[in-house]
């Protein structure tokens, strides 16, 4: 039992296992945190869906492949495959996920940016609430 739990340097294998998972979590946590922040702050289902989708993809693709690899090898693999991974993500995100979000948003009648040219309205200004944004936060 002891041999099963203890590694060569005497540390408990379970701790090493947790440490490695924490390294992976470091990658995922910012995305998860941001998704939560955006969800509660902006209540914007599209952004939330996007970030959640990104997080799930990273978990599904990266986790099984590199879950047992030590830090340096992990960084090396990420560096070597960065372009491929980015390209893959780009195709998935820009070609599949974003169009789905866009379609959903159009169904609910919301457009993000591309607005009609020459609208018959008095102003194109967007009024801002009379408050100072919280400068302690990056959003």
């Amino acid at each position: 039992m002891n041999r099963m739990l203890t590694g060569r340097n005497g540390k408990l294998k379970i701790l090493l296992w947790i440490k490695r998972r924490l390294n992976i979590l470091k990658l995922i946590m910012p995305l998860l945190i941001i998704s939560l922040i955006l969800f509660f702050k902006h209540n914007d289902v599209y952004i939330y869906t996007l970030i959640a989708g990104l997080s799930i993809m990273i978990v599904n693709i990266i986790f099984p492949v590199i879950g047992d690899i030590v830090d340096k090898i992990l960084i090396m693999i990420i560096n070597v495959f960065r372009i491929i991974i980015t390209l893959f993500f780009t195709i998935i995100i820009q070609g599949i996920i974003f169009p789905i979000i866009k379609i959903v948003s159009l169904i609910f009648g919301k457009r993000f940016l591309i607005l009609k040219f020459k609208e018959k309205k008095e102003t194109y200004y967007i009024n801002k609430p009379d408050i100072i944004d919280d400068i302690n936060e990056p959003y």
Binding site: I34, T86, T90, Q94, F98, P138
Partner: peptide, 29 residues
């Protein structure tokens, strides 16, 4: 505010999808 800026960039990518693959490839990372 960097996250607000990111929100704008991502919103832009959603709006232009499925076009803008090159733009997305550069801007997402």
């Amino acid at each position: 505010k960097p996250i607000l800026k990111m929100e704008r960039i991502l919103s832009n990518l959603i709006e232009i999808s499925p076009k803008g693959m090159e733009f997305a490839f550069k801007s997402i990372p």
